[in-house]
């Protein structure tokens, strides 16, 4: 039991150390702009289509369920407000982050893990460069830039999906829906979505890079690392979301 607690403290300490070194590397030279560009394309642009689909479908399903649920109490008119607020504050950041954890987190862990077991990380060091600057920082910054934008995109697509279902199922005019959404969502809700996505981006990339650097046992270790990252980052995202929501509500509501 004590050993497990000690292991957890060591794990947390190493993660914080990686965060500290990465933060220092972000604000000092050299900074690999070309690698950042590559990672923004990999993490951001290549997640666009799946984000659009997930956001849109979330909007469809939520509007359908809330619409029929609230119709029993004569509350259909509240659907645009409830759906848009749920989307921007919770559903979009959570689902987009879980999606990115699955798509990108596992990929980062597998890539760095494979580099580690084939001594490519040692080669980066032996050639007089820093694996943190070369591998971690571009991914971390790219995720911090891309994930919030993906979260906002998912929200937008959800609102579009919700608007279409509200029109077809509940005969709600587009103009009415849009007005209700605009009256409900405040700038701090957008900010809240942004902050959450940024935090989750840091969680996903740090866990993935840390696990990649720890990977041993050849290809088997690489596979385990990828699975570990998806499970751990999903748990951390879901648990930390509660505390983040609480803090953001205290700050803004």
């Amino acid at each position: 039991m004590m050993v497990k607690i000690k292991d957890q403290f060591e794990f947390f300490g190493e993660l914080m150390s990686l965060l500290g070194k990465s933060t220092h590397a972000i604000f000092s030279r050299p900074f690999y702009w070309a690698r950042l560009n590559e990672q923004i394309i990999e993490l951001g642009s290549r997640s666009l289509s799946i984000t659009i689909v997930i956001g849109f479908v979330m909007g469809l399903v939520m509007t359908l369920q809330f619409g029929y649920g609230l119709a029993k109490f004569g509350g259909t008119l509240y659907v645009p407000a409830i759906v848009s607020l749920s989307l921007i504050r919770e559903m979009a950041p959570i689902f987009t982050s879980l999606l990115v954890a699955g798509r990108i987190g596992s990929g980062i862990a597998a890539e760095i893990g494979a580099m580690n077991v084939s001594q490519q990380i040692d080669a980066i060091r032996a050639l007089g460069t820093s694996p943190i600057r070369v591998l971690v920082v571009p991914r971390l910054v790219a995720a911090m830039v891309s994930l919030p934008l993906l979260g906002i995109l998912a929200t937008f697509m959800g609102i579009i999906g919700g608007m279409m279902i509200a029109r077809s199922e509940f005969d709600m005019a587009y103009g009415f829906y849009i007005n209700k959404v605009l009256a409900t969502i405040k700038i701090h809700d957008v900010f809240s979505c942004y902050i959450k996505c940024m935090f989750f981006a840091v969680v996903i990339v740090l866990l993935a890079c840390w696990k990649g650097f720890q990977t041993k046992e050849g290809t088997r270790g690489v596979g385990s690392a990828a699975t570990w990252v998806v499970v751990r980052s999903s748990i951390v995202i879901l648990i930390s979301d509660f505390f983040l929501s609480k803090i953001l509500i205290l700050l803004f509501d």
Binding site: A114, S118, Q120, A123, R125, A126, L127, G128, S130
Partner: peptide, 22 residues
């Protein structure tokens, strides 16, 4: 570690596997 970067341009390492970036 970062102080060693300059040194590693004067003392280089040839890995057993080559360790090329794939």
């Amino acid at each position: 570690e970062e102080e060693l970067f300059e040194l590693r341009t004067k003392m280089s390492y040839a890995f057993q596997s080559g360790a090329l970036f794939d």
